[in-house]
Design a protein around this nucleic acid. Structure first.
Lengths: 139, 139
DNA sequence: CCGAATCCTGATTGATACTG
DNA sequence: CAGTATCAATCAGGATTCGG
């Protein structure tokens, strides 16, 4: 029955079939999948940035959300926060070693997204066409 | 100043520094990062499953959320739905070719999560310890 | 300049009940 | 068995305002 599935179990995914042993993944996805974390991490990949510089680059993020995102990232040890007691105060954020390693798997996902963008777009269009009652919302 | 950053730009991430050109990624993360899609995809990796079988396996998912998740996945062409007009009706869900390819980058993320689980856990604990005002919530 | 606190809105989710 | 509909609760996110 099984078509030509490559054996994914070898990738360590079978351990993730149930919610309980898979909390770690939810964790990661919650961190990287939220609205802004990814942008912060990516923008920080080239070196430290100050708060408002980050805010200017991400443009669209509210200061509240940027603060919360940075706090979350900092809490998880993905980003470090450095305060320079100047006048006015200056604070910079930088990727930690962990934060840098995260970029790699994220990049894989990005590549997948780019490769399948058209397929998905097309698929959605086709699907919406034959499902009149606009529940287009994804899960 | 830049520490030993591997050149991430080569990974195609620099194109993602700003929201606009990065919609695709948000898309993917929205699909895979939501509460249940990942479980569905992973559970389907070994072959087709019926609705309630899926529901039983994921346990914790409400039938509503499973339906919505499957619809979203189907809409994006990641999962296919097959109806057998038996009595009672039987419906099976299966990963499409696209859906199968998604497992690979996801696995990379899973591996990262597993590898950094302890660091993150520890980091959170340390962070919470010196931040009394329980905003433990991540961003 | 950095960022914390408050208020308010809308999207997500879950429980329950009902239909084919 | 598979799926939909409705309702209520929760939560994330944005605008604004105040403090160090």
């Amino acid at each position: 029955m099984s078509p030509g599935h490559p054996d994914l179990p070898a990738l360590g995914l079978q351990a993730c079939a149930e919610p309980s042993p898979c909390v770690e993944v939810k964790d990661v996805l919650a961190r990287v999948g939220d609205k802004w974390s990814l942008y912060v991490v990516v923008n920080l990949h080239a070196g430290p940035l100050r708060f408002n510089e980050l805010k200017r680059r991400i443009d669209g993020v509210s200061q509240r959300m940027l603060t919360l995102t940075l706090r979350g990232l900092e809490r998880d040890g993905l980003v470090s926060r450095t305060v320079y007691p100047t006048q006015p105060p200056s604070v910079t954020y930088e990727l930690t070693a962990s934060g840098q390693t995260l970029l790699r798997p994220v990049a894989a996902l990005v590549r997948w997204a780019q490769a399948h963008r058209d397929d998905i777009e097309q698929s959605r269009h086709a699907f919406d066409a034959q499902h009149p009652h606009a529940h287009t919302s994804g899960a």
